[in-house]
């Protein structure tokens, strides 16, 4: 899952980016509204974390322009705590609103929930055959026993599970599990796929030659 963090305070941005990266998200960031808007418009993010008080283009304006075309979930992360601000933010098209200071855990949970909902999954655990993907705990179990996956592998499984029954192209995988700073050599996807197959069964991920991959197809 790939998220964009638009936050102008370098220290806070760093904390959020690191926390989300450690959860296996591909994280891009922007330190002002103009940069944030151009990134948000040019990539298919799974979620956007947006500060409101931004240089160049403020959060409201960014959200207004972004919502003209994009349906990506947006979580507003701001120090503006007045009820009026929250209502204005949600009415402007934001999907969630978190006030600073916040717990990273809550930010993570809200992002998971936003991404899950956007993929049409209400339940946090997705069961595919004998494999259960627990998106809340970010853990995978097979035959009821936990399977250890790397963050990247988990992200791959989650992406495919969220789109179960649909073909996920290699481009989508690039877009959603690698950040802009990742070294995204094409064969890395194959490496991750083969690792997952070893851990969750050979037939867990099917390859549709020339199209991409699919789970539970």
């Amino acid at each position: 899952m790939r998220v964009l963090v638009v936050e102008d305070d370098p220290d806070l941005r760093q904390a959020v980016v690191r926390a989300l990266s450690e959860d296996g998200y591909a994280v891009d960031f922007a330190s002002d509204g103009a940069d944030g808007l151009s990134k948000a418009m040019s990539w298919e993010y799974d979620a956007v974390v947006l500060d409101l008080m931004l240089p160049e283009v403020d959060g409201w304006e960014l959200l207004r322009r972004f919502r003209k075309t994009k349906k990506t979930p947006v979580l507003i992360l701001t120090a503006r705590d007045a009820v009026g601000d929250r209502v204005r933010g949600l009415d402007a098209g934001a999907d969630d609103y978190l006030v600073k200071p916040f717990a990273l855990n809550e930010l993570r949970a809200r992002l998971r929930s936003l991404i899950r909902r956007a993929a049409g999954q209400a339940h946090p655990a997705i069961t595919i055959g004998d494999v259960v993907v627990d998106t809340a705990a970010r853990k995978v179990a097979r035959h009821g026993k936990p399977v250890t996956l790397t963050a990247r592998e988990y992200a791959l499984v989650e992406l495919l599970a969220m789109h179960r029954g649909k073909i996920v192209t290699r481009t989508m995988i690039y877009d959603h599990i690698f950040g802009e700073d990742d070294d995204s050599l094409s064969n890395l996807i194959d490496v991750h796929i083969s690792h997952v197959r070893k851990k969750l069964g050979k037939d867990f991920i099917e390859t549709r030659r020339g199209l991409g991959y699919v789970i539970d197809g």
Binding site: A15, A79, F102
Partner: peptide, 24 residues
């Protein structure tokens, strides 16, 4: 509101960095 807003950002920085440091 402005004063609390100004205090919230450094507080958020502290809280998030401390939480991050303790996750692992």
């Amino acid at each position: 509101a402005d004063a609390s807003h100004e205090l919230r950002t450094p507080l958020a920085v502290m809280m998030s960095h401390l939480e991050l440091a303790r996750t692992q």
